[in-house]
Nucleic acid binder design. Structure first.
Lengths: 83, 83
DNA sequence: TTAGAATATGCGCTGTAGCGTATTTTTGGG
DNA sequence: CCCAAAAATACGCTACAGCGCATATTCTAA
């Protein structure tokens, strides 16, 4: 449920999962936040240039929040590190 | 310890607290991440345009991570909402 | 299989992040 | 108080995010 996210990709994945769980299309989500469907697509695909404003708006629309915490706990290996 | 952060400002605050706890200056942190002291300053002050790349780099350098989760739990009121 | 929805991508444009460099302002220890 | 270290701010520059608009591609249910 709580999703550790250390990279833009992981954040994007968490957002996509949540959006789908809520049964929203990228277009529908975009309307709520006043951003384009294309921008939602970019955020979910983990564009590292995504701005914090955009991210926070999307999280709010999905009723999600960030927690910032020390990296003490175990985290899954990243795909990027394997290949 | 775990810091709920729903806005750029709250994220910036969490970063600043952590940096100070680790006894780092903005310049020292910037060197680790290869960004300018001025950029660290901007991130900590909650610039909403901050890019995800920058944010994730800074978090990594401070050995912090994000958790993405539903907003179910109680969260403190935001300063912006009070004034 | 296939139509229709959903998502990804392209193009030209505007706004702005982060850069180097530098200065000003704030701060905290002596 | 005073000064050095830290932090905030300034300026011109380049790179690119997000925009509107449009199309291409991929999913999915009938």
């Amino acid at each position: 449920m709580d999703q550790i996210a250390r990279t833009p990709k992981q954040i994007g994945d968490a957002i996509r999962r949540r959006r789908r769980k809520l049964g929203l299309s990228q277009t529908a989500l975009g309307k709520r936040v006043q951003i384009r469907q294309a921008t939602v697509s970019a955020v979910e695909s983990g564009e590292p240039g995504t701005q914090l404003r955009t991210l926070c708006d999307v999280l709010a629309a999905l009723d999600l929040e960030f927690v910032v915490r020390p990296r003490s706990k175990a985290a899954p290996a990243e795909i990027e590190d394997i290949f």
